[in-house]
Every structure is written in structure tokens, then in C-alpha cells.
Simulated scan of single mutants.
Amino acid sequence: MLKTVEMIVDFRRNTPALPPLTIMNSTVPTVESFRFLGTTISQDLKLDTHIDSIIKKAQQRLYFLWQLRKFNLPQELLTQFYSAVIESVLCTSITVWFGSATKSDIRRLQRTVRTAERIIGAPLPTLQELYTSRVRKRALKITLDPSHPGHLLFDLLPSGRRYRAATTRTARHKNSFFLQAIYLLNS
């Protein structure tokens, strides 16, 4: 019961006052944001808190990359260290949050990648490239697994070569994983 919280996501202009949620005579606390499977989710579905924590973790790990460079490690080992320790932090649940991140947030994250490139002295994949490859890989897995709940969202057109894209009215829906995945699979 201690891990149970209530978060209301409601984009209506006039949100009605709701009575407190009670489970087994215990009132569930209402929160504005919480951490779920490593991703901080906020009431307004903005990612500022989550991206701030990613940047902080990545910058802390850049220190160790600097230290390894001081010891004259080969470029290949520095790149492997970056991939294992820093890129893994930057890409944790990237398919969930990257599509909804603002341009300024992506620039802040990409600055960390550029700093690592300067330390290593070699080009590294951009966050957009990492996002694209991971979305495409996950989407292919979903299309091949009929038991996946999202499998039905990947509907082939009669030609059998392209997937049907759902019509959308909001940017939030357009930037969702499934629509981005369909776009990437069709390109």
C-alpha cells in the first residue's frame, strides 16, 4: 500500500474536484509526478524532471570518461566505456520519452554526447539515430509477435508493403511511440 499513489492526468480546462481515492479504509496520496520503471512521469506529461535526472547522471559519468582518457586508454576502449556507461543512461526508455521531448531538451541531451565525442576524439551516434534504431527494432518485434497488445496497431495496407498510419489531431498522439514506429517502418 505504501507504493500506491494517485496521479490525475486531465487536460480539460475545468477539471472537476474529485473525492480522495480510498483503498481498504486508507486514503491514497495524490502526487503530481512519480517514477515508474525508471521514467519520471508528471501530471502534465512533460519530461523536464526526467530529462534533468538523465543529464545529471550522464554528466556524472562523463567524469570517469575524462579520467580514463587521462590514463591514455585507446579510443576503442573509451568508446566501449561510453556505450556501456553513458549511452545506456541516455537511452534508458528512450522509445517512451524521446518523441515527446522538446527541442531544447534534446539539445541539452545532445550536448552531453558532443562532450563525450570531444573526450574520446571520435564521432558518436546522435540521440536521434539511437532513438530511430531502437524504435525500428522494437516495432519489428511487435509486428512479429501476435500476442503483443500493440500488434493490432500495425495494420498493413492492402499492398502488404506499408503500414496504415492512424489519423491524429494532437501533437501528443502524433509523437507517440506507435505512430513514430509506423512512420519509421514505412520509410
Rank of each mutant, 00 (worst) to 15 (best):
L185D: 04
T15A: 12
L144A: 14
T167I: 08
R134E: 01
S26G: 08
I23N: 07
T95Q: 02
D105I: 01
E87P: 00
Y183V: 12
F98V: 06
A101M: 01
T115W: 00
K174N: 10
P20Y: 06
Q80I: 12
L152W: 04
V28K: 05
T132V: 10
I8E: 01
E129D: 14
M1L: 13
A116R: 06
F71N: 08
A84W: 05
D155Y: 12
S53C: 02
S176Q: 08
T92F: 03
I142F: 02
T167P: 05
T170I: 02
F36N: 15
D155S: 12
S83Y: 03
S100C: 07
Y131W: 04
Q180Y: 02
H148L: 09
I119N: 04
T30V: 09
H151R: 11
S33I: 03
G150Y: 15
R35M: 03
V31A: 01
I54V: 15
S147C: 03
T79S: 14
G99Y: 12
K174P: 01
Q128E: 09
S187P: 04
H173E: 13
L130I: 06
S104C: 13
L65A: 05
I94M: 07
Y183P: 00
A122T: 05
A165C: 11
H50R: 00
R107W: 05
N25S: 14
L62Q: 05
R172H: 12
I54Y: 02
